[in-house]
Amino acid sequence: MKIYIKNMVCIRCQMVVKNELKKLNLEYSDVKIGEANIIGTITEEDLKKLDTSLKMAGLELMSSRKRILVEKTTNAIIELVHYTDEQIKVNLSIFLSDKLNYDYTYLANLFTEVKGTTIEKFYLKHKIERVKELLVYDELNLSEIAYKMHYSSVAHLSNQFKKITGLTPSQFKTLKNISRDTLENL
């Protein structure tokens, strides 16, 4: 049985889910961002216990098909931006449509309805948050970051960064108290 989990956006979240499943003696075959495959059946009582324990960790079980699809869209974008260096070879719309097996217009409308923002704005926010992370690490220069994040130029990255944050990348880098958002709050 597959269960879907809201706000499960990182490896630590996966560890939390695995620990909670073990506490309830629920066997699983796979736990990945946004979902877990439970071996066998799970009782309503165990589902409620799991949901309660997950909520304490900022996670939540989902049952609405629409919310599950939006969460899958969210997780696909997060994985693409934060956990792969691979550049998609097609437009984001085609990538998401192919990955989730839904028409992009339907995905986009549903995403906006549930999240209150467009897929494109969500994607750009995540790209800029990843750029912030790379700037804070201070291991790459701006040209290397632009290349890594698949921007056509440093100017394009800088313009988008300023549009979203109000600062240039170099202004951001000089801040003493650099603030970054958590992935689940973007």
Rank of each mutant, 00 (worst) to 15 (best):
S152N: 14
S179M: 08
I3S: 01
K22Y: 11
N159K: 11
Y83C: 06
Q160F: 07
Q87P: 03
G40Q: 07
V70Q: 02
F95L: 08
T41M: 07
G58N: 08
K173D: 03
F161S: 00
K173C: 04
T165H: 05
F111N: 02
S170W: 09
I119K: 08
R130N: 04
F111R: 06
K148E: 12
A36Y: 03
S152P: 11
E139F: 14
K121Q: 11
V9A: 05
V131T: 07
I77F: 01
S53H: 10
K125M: 09
R65I: 03
Q14K: 14
L47N: 03
T73H: 00
C13Y: 12
L110R: 08
T168Y: 06
I178C: 06
K173E: 05
T52V: 06
E86T: 13
L61T: 04
S93V: 04
N37T: 11
I77A: 02
T52Y: 07
K99T: 12
L110Y: 02
M62Q: 04
I119P: 00
D103L: 09
C10R: 13
L124E: 12
L26Q: 04
I88F: 02
D85C: 05
I38S: 01
E129C: 04
M15D: 14
E20I: 13
I33F: 13
A146L: 10
S158L: 11
N7D: 15
L186D: 04
K115E: 05
S179G: 06
S170K: 13
E20L: 14
R67A: 06
R130V: 03
N75V: 03
F95C: 03
S143I: 14
E60D: 07
E44V: 05
Y147T: 13
H82W: 06
K66V: 02
L124S: 07
L21W: 10
L54H: 01
T41E: 10
N25M: 13
L134M: 14
N177T: 04
E44S: 09
G40H: 08
E45M: 06
R12M: 10
S153R: 13
M15G: 12
C13T: 11
